[in-house]
């Protein structure tokens, strides 16, 4: 296994993961493109030592393992289609909201706000009780 390939996989993965932690969908898409490349390189690396093109009878040198290459090709086609779909999704989000940021779940926020409101109300009630007690003590 070539050390250069290994470093390429590590670098692509690191940059890819950095990019998908963003809230910006176009950055996330770029991140997935890089992560996909890293995974495909990983598949090719897993195929073993390099060799001649795997065509029957074309060469008497040892040939490269064709199976992981077939797997890698399939994976590339799939990630190509998905990238297009995500770009369309980002475009739609841009039209709807003016930016392609990933937004929070509204229902989650509503539930969280309800809990905060209940806590605030409980606080108020407690304060009022304390005030009453103090009032009683003073009289």
């Amino acid at each position: 296994m070539s050390v250069a390939l290994l470093f390429a996989i590590a670098g692509l993965t690191a940059v890819g993961i950095y990019l998908i932690t963003s809230r910006n969908l176009s950055r996330i898409i770029l991140g997935f493109v890089l992560l996909g490349h890293a995974a495909v390189l990983g598949l090719v690396t897993a195929g073993g030592p390099p060799g001649e093109a795997p065509i029957a009878g074309a060469s008497d040198q040892p040939i490269a393992n064709p199976l992981p290459q077939a797997l890698a090709l399939t994976a590339i086609v799939i990630s190509f289609g998905l990238t297009l779909f995500m770009l369309a999704l980002a475009g739609r989000q841009q039209t709807l909201s003016g930016s392609d940021l990933v937004e929070d779940d509204l229902e989650d926020r509503r539930l969280a706000a309800r809990a905060e409101r209940a806590a605030a109300l409980a606080d108020l009630a407690e304060q009022a009780e304390e005030r009453d007690e103090q009032h009683e003590e003073s009289t």
Partner: peptide, 16 residues
């Protein structure tokens, strides 16, 4: 998509 990418990495590990 993240899970799918991890799946692909996993396939590379298994094959290797």
């Amino acid at each position: 998509l993240l899970a799918s990418t991890l799946f692909l990495f996993g396939l590379a590990y298994v094959y290797a």
